[in-house]
Amino acid sequence: MPGVDEAPGGRPRQKRRASDVIRKISQILGELMITAGVVLILFVAWELWWTNVEADAKQTEAVKSFAQEFTGPVAPAAPADYGKPVVGTAPGHGETIGIMYIPRFGATYTRPIIEGTGSDVLDTLGLGHYGSTGMPGATGNFAVAGHRQTHGAVLDSIHTLVPGDKIYVQTKDGYYTYVFRNNQIVLPNRTDVLLPVPTQPGATPQESILTMTSCNPRFGSQERIIAYSVLDSWQPASAGPPSEIASQVAQAQGKG
């Protein structure tokens, strides 16, 4: 007959209890790991999908608001020399400077440019203007920042730009056409890319430069990718938009 410390068949009760405890612990750990996995998946979905949905809605609203106040025609302007570009004054933090169009990023790429680079701007409103830099058309550096994979992913395709690509900036004063020149990968502490002549302290600017900054690589932030473009031409709002973006301008104003 089994002893008092043994289960029927000779199995010790103590070993059976230990086995039950291990089984329960393993079950709990397994459930915790599954829960952690689900939470991680939900977080990734929120970060890569929902933040884009929310930001897209805010940016669309900002574009429409700017377009409704814009009084210029939407018919394409004939090529002409309109003299020196008008340089506007920076608005208050969180206010709209204008709209950026980048055909390389797609036929519908229309993003607002907002004053400021805080999270309140970059996480919802799109491209943020570095307040320490100039305005569109100014001699020197007009610099903006934007996210790549989240919060609207406004500069997700920054790495696809090739020399010669045109980037259009629309403000209440008119349209500024920049031509992409080159990009550069730097560490996050390289604030010299925002100087009047990027990376050249003390240099006197001779050109009007557009600098776009974003995180690098696409799914990380260990570095920064910097895209430089140079002003090629400008035309006043009263002349109408460049032909390449005329349909987008019309659509933004509800006339397309």
Score class of each variant (00 low, 15 high):
Q14Y: 14
D56I: 02
T133C: 02
V193E: 14
I97Q: 08
H151I: 03
L195Q: 05
W50I: 13
V162N: 06
E47K: 11
A80G: 14
G72C: 02
H147F: 15
F142D: 01
D120F: 01
E244I: 09
A7V: 07
D173F: 03
A246D: 11
A75S: 15
I185C: 06
S208P: 07
K172S: 11
Q170S: 04
L161T: 04
G174V: 00
K58W: 11
F219T: 10
P196T: 03
I97Y: 08
L195T: 03
F180R: 08
A36D: 10
R224M: 05
T117I: 15
M33P: 00
E54D: 11
G131Q: 14
L161Y: 05
V154S: 11
K15Q: 15
T171N: 02
S119Q: 14
F66G: 10
V38D: 06
P198A: 11
P198S: 13
A67Q: 10
T117V: 15
P163K: 03
D123E: 13
T213C: 14
T160Q: 14
N189T: 11
G140V: 03
E54I: 12
T51G: 07
A55G: 01
V230K: 10
G37E: 10
I114Y: 08
D5Q: 09
D56V: 04
D123T: 06
S247A: 13
T213W: 00
Y168E: 01
V169K: 09
P241Y: 00
L29T: 13
T204M: 07
H147G: 11
A57M: 10
A7G: 12
G220C: 01
P73W: 05
T213R: 09
G98R: 02
Q27F: 12
A107Y: 06
L122C: 03
E115S: 07
S238P: 00
G240S: 01
R190G: 02
S119H: 07
P188H: 05
S243P: 06
K255A: 09
Q235N: 05
N189Q: 13
F70T: 01
T150L: 09
Q253S: 15
F142H: 02
A7M: 13
P198Y: 11
Y109I: 00
E47C: 07
T213G: 06
V249Q: 03
P136H: 08
P198F: 11
E31Q: 12
V179S: 09
P2Y: 09
G146H: 04
G146Y: 08
T71E: 14
P242K: 02
P201C: 06
H151Q: 12
V121A: 00
D20Y: 09
D81W: 00
P241W: 01
Y228S: 09
V39F: 14
Q251H: 12
I28L: 13
T71F: 00
I114N: 05
F105D: 05
R148F: 09
M100G: 04
Q222D: 15
D232M: 11
P12H: 15
A45G: 07
H159A: 15
T204A: 13
V38A: 10
A90G: 06
T71D: 13
I185R: 10
D192R: 04
V74D: 15
Y109G: 03
Q200I: 08
A203H: 06
T191F: 08
T51S: 13
A57Y: 08
N182T: 13
I22C: 12
P205L: 02
L32M: 15
A227T: 05
R148M: 09
F219S: 04
F142C: 04
G240D: 01
M1A: 14
G164F: 03
